[in-house]
Write a protein that binds this DNA or RNA. Structure first.
Lengths: 213, 213
DNA sequence: AGTTGTGAACTTATTCACAGCC
DNA sequence: GGCTGTGAATAAGTTCACAACT
């Protein structure tokens, strides 16, 4: 295993591998080949092997990968072995949906703080968490929370991001449009832009209007 | 303008350009250069020019692009000029959040049908739409609805996708894990996997556990 | 026989540099 | 002077093919 810069796309796939392996391990499977994992996840076998090869040698020729062993290694690589507290900023429809979404938990990610602008929501307690004023974001520093989910309207995204950086947040999952965020930021920001994803779907519809050349 | 296969990444960026231009047009701007648009959207200028060049020549040297003209062209290219009806499948927390999300509307996309499994929700009326049983998905064919948003648990995703295909749906925005979906499908499927995106964020935290080689 | 790990070939995407136009 | 459109150069990512291992 020589040193290589690790492609972003590889990192993007690692959690997918992890989920597949956890699923298999749950079903009692002890080993899996790259080819079988490929079938399950709709990712090609050589791709999986190459991705893993950037981090080490985890398999046994002729046998495959130990489901338990490899998922442990992936958790190490992804830094998911220690549990992470996550702050949720914005408790509108989307924020509330995210709070109730259980998909994070198996990766050791837990929302433990919520912030809102709306005075009518501040002070309410949801899932045992007291909704705080966004002005109290600076308290995250004390609480050693490093990750945040941004589920707020475009207008306030820039200001809140700056507050989060001030408060020592190091990673943000952002649901606001990406142009709202300061590009010079040191913080790792992953943006999910639901509107943009839906807006490009009609492009692929078979009957398409021709565009004048 | 020679013929080129259009990169997927280019198509992914088109809606971003469109949004930027609509924003500028709203502010009364008549023209914009690729460089200025680049600054706003955090996408490089030459990238924007090349992306657009796959579809035609939309700008004026020395002047830039007409905000109104180019946004019209992009709407044509993306097939967003005629309004599209969208079916929402799954009215849980996420489904409800998506229904209330207004970001689609400016692109002519409107949710006009909702389907659910849960008998307690079927029959309820939300935003003037009557929630129907998923068994009635076949009715979409009559209604000429071609797009769907899938906001349901992993377990039922495969079955529902098959139903949607039967009903003539041609594009799906999918919030279930991608392995749940039949890879051989003819339908264009764009998957948003919130859990996986959050799970890769800790990888980028500066203090990382070393992995044994 | 079956499978991994990986260099090399290939494909896809981005960036540069500049001719040509306003 | 300022800007677009684009071929050529570069970079990034994927796939292949196969030696090495169990």
């Amino acid at each position: 295993m020589k040193f290589h810069r690790i492609p972003d796309e590889t990192v993007r796939r690692l959690p997918i591998y992890l989920r597949g392996l956890l699923l298999l391990a749950e079903q009692g499977r002890e080993h899996v080949s790259s080819h079988e994992l490929a079938d399950i996840l709709h990712i090609k076998g050589p791709q999986i092997r190459k991705d893993l090869s950037y981090f080490g040698e985890f398999g046994t020729p002729g046998v495959g990968y130990g489901t338990k062993e490899l998922s442990d290694c992936l958790r190490d690589i992804l830094n998911l072995n220690c549990p992470h507290k996550v702050a949720l900023v914005g408790y509108g429809n989307l924020g509330a949906a995210i709070l109730r979404y259980s998909g994070f938990r198996s990766y050791g990610l837990k929302i433990t703080a919520i912030f809102e602008n709306n005075p009518r929501k501040i002070g309410r307690i949801v899932q045992n968490i007291r909704i705080q004023d966004v002005k109290e974001i600076s308290s995250l520093k004390r609480k050693k929370i490093e990750l945040a989910i941004l589920a707020i309207p475009a207008e306030s995204a820039r200001e809140v991001t700056e507050r989060l950086e001030q408060a020592g947040i190091l990673g943000i999952l952002n649901f606001a449009p990406s142009y709202c965020i300061d590009a010079r930021s040191k913080v790792k920001i992953i943006t999910i832009d639901i509107g943009m994803d839906l807006a490009r779907l009609p492009y692929y519809l078979p009957i398409k209007a021709e565009i004048a050349g």
